[in-house]
Computed example of a mutant assay.
Amino acid sequence: MTDDTTTPHGAGAEGTPPAPDTPLVELRGAGKSYGNVRALHGVDLTVDAGRVTCVLGDNGAGKSTLIKIVSGLHRHTEGEFLVDGRPVRFATPRDALARGIATVYQDLATVPLMPVWRNFFLGSELTKGPWPLRRLDIARMKRTADRELRDMGIVLDDLEQPVGTLSGGQRQSVAIARAVHFGARVLILDEPTAALGVRQSGVVLKYIAAARDRGLGVVFITHNPHHAYMVGDHFSVLRLGTLELSADRGDVGLEELTDHMAGGAELAALKHELAQVRGVDARELPEEADLTAPWRRPRKAAPDPAPPSGGT
């Protein structure tokens, strides 16, 4: 990792702790280019402790590139990337982990046939005994995994069951608890509800809120504004690699957030173009607000009740 000085977690310049209001992670005008292709440009992002920052965008908006920069997989080519107020340039994801930045990807990096407790400590197994006779400390790993899962509100009947037998929401929850246990201060969740049903999505959202309540800074990557609005404290909407919207929860409503996600202006332009196509009656197309937020469409008035037959 390229850095000004080597400091412990949470230390600022010259080894001094950062100010209390210093963001855990901050991007200032950050961008990433692959040769002549600019994938991300001029993005500002702030991640504070005890807050959920939601990054929304459609496919190709730049969410994956943003994740790769913050998680240390790729280096930014423009702007600044700061951790605890200090500029950094991570060389590998291990550098990001060393600074308390953990990423939970959609594939969860689990081994389906291994028990839950083995997956919890995968790559960081506890051992006991003298070298060269050291062996896995299975009992301690089971106790630790069970305690950490329960602290997150996750109660599993059998830690010996293969993790592949858990539901999607449970597997996401195990991955979140694992990241918290191994010292994550910033937790990046890559589309954790994308392949889940309504109930399992609710389970994951509950544990996202639990991670926030434990003081972590959470980056929730999603294309679902409804899920984001349930737990989010700040919303950043990406479109074609640039920042479309950056607003706190109190400054934006769900409908406006959905409008930015759907691209209201682009849909209005599409309506104008369709009006030039033969056989398309533009008058029958919904207005801009209707395109961006279908629930805004006025309901048809109920017909007046028919008068009673033969009545007075």
Score class of each variant (00 low, 15 high):
29 G>I: 10
29 G>E: 04
29 G>C: 07
29 G>R: 12
29 G>Y: 01
29 G>Q: 07
30 A>T: 04
30 A>R: 04
30 A>L: 07
30 A>H: 03
30 A>C: 08
31 G>T: 01
31 G>P: 06
31 G>V: 08
31 G>Y: 05
31 G>R: 10
32 K>P: 08
32 K>C: 11
32 K>E: 03
32 K>D: 03
32 K>T: 03
33 S>P: 04
33 S>E: 13
33 S>Y: 02
33 S>Q: 09
34 Y>S: 12
34 Y>F: 15
34 Y>A: 06
34 Y>D: 07
34 Y>R: 12
34 Y>N: 10
34 Y>W: 07
34 Y>G: 06
35 G>Y: 12
35 G>A: 12
35 G>S: 12
35 G>W: 11
36 N>Y: 09
36 N>M: 12
36 N>V: 12
36 N>R: 15
37 V>R: 14
37 V>A: 14
37 V>H: 14
37 V>K: 11
37 V>F: 15
38 R>E: 14
38 R>C: 12
38 R>W: 05
38 R>F: 00
38 R>K: 14
38 R>L: 10
39 A>I: 08
39 A>W: 07
39 A>K: 11
39 A>H: 11
39 A>M: 11
40 L>W: 02
40 L>N: 02
40 L>G: 10
40 L>Y: 08
40 L>I: 13
40 L>V: 05
40 L>H: 06
40 L>C: 01
41 H>S: 15
41 H>A: 12
41 H>M: 00
41 H>D: 15
41 H>P: 00
41 H>Q: 14
41 H>T: 10
42 G>E: 15
42 G>V: 01
42 G>C: 07
42 G>K: 04
42 G>N: 13
42 G>A: 15
42 G>F: 00
43 V>K: 02
43 V>Y: 05
43 V>M: 07
43 V>W: 06
44 D>Y: 04
44 D>W: 01
44 D>M: 03
44 D>R: 02
44 D>E: 13
44 D>G: 07
45 L>T: 02
45 L>S: 05
45 L>D: 02
45 L>Y: 09
45 L>K: 04
46 T>C: 00
46 T>I: 00
46 T>A: 13
47 V>E: 02
47 V>Y: 05
47 V>M: 05
47 V>T: 06
47 V>I: 14
47 V>R: 05
48 D>Q: 10
48 D>R: 12
48 D>L: 09
48 D>W: 03
48 D>Y: 09
48 D>V: 04
49 A>S: 14
49 A>W: 06
49 A>M: 10
49 A>L: 10
49 A>N: 06
50 G>Q: 01
50 G>C: 11
50 G>P: 11
50 G>K: 09
51 R>Y: 09
51 R>D: 06
51 R>V: 04
51 R>N: 09
51 R>A: 04
52 V>D: 03
52 V>I: 15
53 T>V: 02
53 T>F: 00
53 T>C: 13
53 T>E: 08
53 T>N: 04
53 T>R: 02
54 C>P: 03
54 C>M: 12
54 C>S: 12
54 C>R: 02
55 V>H: 01
55 V>F: 00
55 V>G: 01
57 G>A: 08
57 G>I: 10
57 G>V: 03
57 G>H: 07
58 D>Q: 14
58 D>Y: 04
58 D>S: 13
58 D>P: 08
58 D>L: 14
58 D>I: 01
59 N>M: 09
59 N>W: 13
59 N>L: 07
59 N>T: 12
59 N>A: 13
59 N>P: 13
59 N>G: 12
59 N>H: 11
59 N>V: 06
59 N>S: 13
